[in-house]
Amino acid sequence: MDDKRSELKKIIMDTKTLPTLPGVINKLNSLSDNDKASVQEMAKVVTSDQVLSARILRLANSPSYGFYRVSTISNAMILLGVNVVKSLALSSSIFEIMEKNSVGLWEHSLGVGVAANLLARRLKLPECEEIATAALLHDIGKVIVSIKCNEAEKEILKLVRDRGFYIREAEREVLDTDHAEVGGWLAKSWFLPDKLSEPVAFHHDVVKSENHRIKTSVVHIADVLIKASGFGNSGDCHVPKIQQVAWDTLKLNEQVLSDVVDEIEDKLVEVKNFSLEMIGS
């Protein structure tokens, strides 16, 4: 069993066989670290990728942002903020990788992204966009498992179907690792910052998240909320247990939860239309 795990890890770390992030993202990252870079320069980088530009404009014009009409990338960058555009660029590449794989999982991830954003805003947390991006990424490990271990994935899904396992239990049984850990490896190999990789790696085990426990807690709760809504398809249909440590970290209470559920249910109608539109395009 242990062989399987180290083998998988080797595959993940071997970047040649992995879906890679487009060069645009790396350029954007280095530009945004540079104080002297202007928004126009960054916009130019984004504009060099037409698909990405189209996606960003589409996202900037989507109802969830509520701006009227945004027609240029530099306007989008000024309105949304550089960090948001970076998150958007990252998430639209993730989308590309996920879209080909499974619409159900993409919808689940998109839903968790929306839920995490709403929850983070409601709790007035800093860096809502980063939290939403981490949430969007949280199940990326499942994509890798499905790309790299097609046979094992079938076995996993069979266990879920026949024995009522959580997908994570089934992954542990078959692969001796799980999608959260795999996602964590992937995030590391992409050199994503800890504030993104930690929530991905520990969204089922909030206790283990040491530096970014708040973000991890939001992603965990958002995952539970979307599973409770039954939106999208993440492999199994069971609502995971809400972890006490996440609840305490965020100082949640019934009222907050109820408000957020109302907001999420409302938003999910739009998300559904949006994802249909994205897939149709």
Binding site: Y166, K227, A228, G230, C237, H238, V239, K241, I242, Q244
Partner: peptide
């Protein structure tokens, strides 16, 4: 969806 975890108070 809740059959596995409904016993949990949260």
């Amino acid at each position: 969806r809740f059959e596995k975890t409904i016993q949990d108070p949260l």
